[in-house]
Simulated scan of single mutants.
Amino acid sequence: MITPRPFNVMIVGQAGRLQYEALLFAASLRANAPDFAGKLYVVEPQPGKLWDHDPRLAGDVRAALEELGAQVVPFASEHFGQSYPQGNKIEGLKALPAGEPFVFFDTDTLITGDLARVPFDFDHPAASMKREGTWPVEELYWPGYSAIWKSLYDQFGLDFDSSLDLSQPDEYWERYLYFNAGWFYGADPAAFGERFTEYALSIRDDPPPELVIQPLDPWLDQVALPLVVHSFGGGRPGPELAGLDGNITCHYRMLPLLYARGSDAQIAALESVSAPNRIKKMLKQYDPFKRMIYQKRGQKVRALFDRDNLPRHEKALRNKIKSAGFWMR
């Protein structure tokens, strides 16, 4: 067993939905991980040529985040910006202290347990396995999973064969290293972010011929991430990290999905950390949070589903919620 060591946490915060999700994340971290000894960094994109609006946090939300112990740090969008906001998680890594272990979380995440006790092995990075086979996309004339993934490993001089899960059949998507970019970690955010940026730009701007008919928006971060993790000697997370996407963290994506498929404990954690008046005052400024949490629309969504017999794919969940008129984002 690896002894837990101090680390920093990074999320992205910016104007709009993400700033309210960031506040909910910070409140849940403070409430449910009291022994967390690192710092919570909320990385904030700055206005510039890649944005047609000011992406910075609202002043009252910034103040509330700082009251919860978060440190808001700016970064410049040099490559992605508004056209590919998922790139914020890539470029934002440069705002963290170099050389200090880090864990990144998508902002639409709740901390529901003691994050400080998770035995991260920062010398062997990993990322979330809570994913579906969304990429590459099967096409009529595509070359297949192996050819596409091998072309990417070859592009960066990486060993493809050692990345494979040989317990899975050839040409089945789970055989290939593929993550949800909802969380990942490493030993040095500067080095990780530099390589993540390098790989993502290379894939976007100079993809191998095997990718010619493959979509990269919104999948670019999830295409590059396994290559970056592998390049640093990492891979699939072991059972010691089962609490992530389990009883310690919950990547809910959208509140209607959390109410639809979340456990009773996760819903209790959400409603507990959102109850204090200072938090409530902020979150009610965002209409989906106001309606879902405080006006109890989330409980109506919850009543639509049997948690012991949920649809297999997220799309079916979304469609049922939309049909009932309860979808919000």
Rank of each mutant, 00 (worst) to 15 (best):
C250L: 09
I248K: 06
E271I: 03
S272I: 01
T249P: 03
A269G: 07
I248R: 07
A265D: 03
A275I: 03
I267L: 13
A260S: 08
G243Q: 12
R278D: 15
H251N: 03
S274D: 12
G262P: 01
L244S: 10
A269P: 10
L283Y: 02
L241R: 12
R261W: 03
V273L: 11
I267P: 00
Q266F: 00
P256S: 13
Q266R: 05
A268F: 07
Y252R: 06
D245Y: 02
H251C: 07
H251T: 02
G246I: 06
G243F: 11
L255Q: 10
M254R: 11
M282H: 07
K281Y: 05
H251G: 03
L283M: 09
P256V: 14
H251F: 05
L257N: 09
K284C: 14
S272E: 14
A275G: 09
L255D: 10
P276L: 14
S274V: 11
D264I: 00
L255E: 10
G243D: 12
I279P: 01
A269R: 03
Y252K: 04
I279Q: 05
M254Y: 08
Q266C: 02
S272T: 15
D245R: 04
H251R: 04
Q285C: 10
I267Q: 00
L241P: 10
C250G: 02
R253G: 01
I267T: 01
L270H: 10
S272D: 15
L257D: 09
D245C: 09
S274K: 07
Y252Q: 06
Q266T: 13
K281Q: 14
A265R: 01
L258N: 08
A269Q: 06
L258E: 02
K280T: 13
P256K: 12
I279E: 03
D245F: 01
A268N: 11
A268Y: 08
G246Y: 08
A242T: 14
N277G: 15
Q285S: 06
D264Y: 00
L270Y: 09
Y259E: 02
A265S: 08
G243A: 15
Q285K: 13
G243S: 15
E271P: 01
S274C: 11
D245E: 15
P256M: 14
S272F: 11
I267G: 00
V273E: 11
I267C: 00
K281G: 05
I248H: 03
L283G: 04
T249N: 04
L283N: 05
G243K: 11
A268P: 11
A242S: 15
A265F: 01
N247M: 01
L255I: 10
A260P: 06
D264E: 13
A260Q: 03
G262V: 03
L257V: 11
A260F: 06
Y252P: 03
L283T: 08
E271F: 02
N247E: 12
A265L: 00
Y259H: 02
S272W: 06
Y259W: 10
A275E: 15
A265E: 08
L241D: 11
G246C: 04
Q266A: 05
R278L: 12
Y259M: 08
R278Q: 14
G262Y: 06
L241A: 14
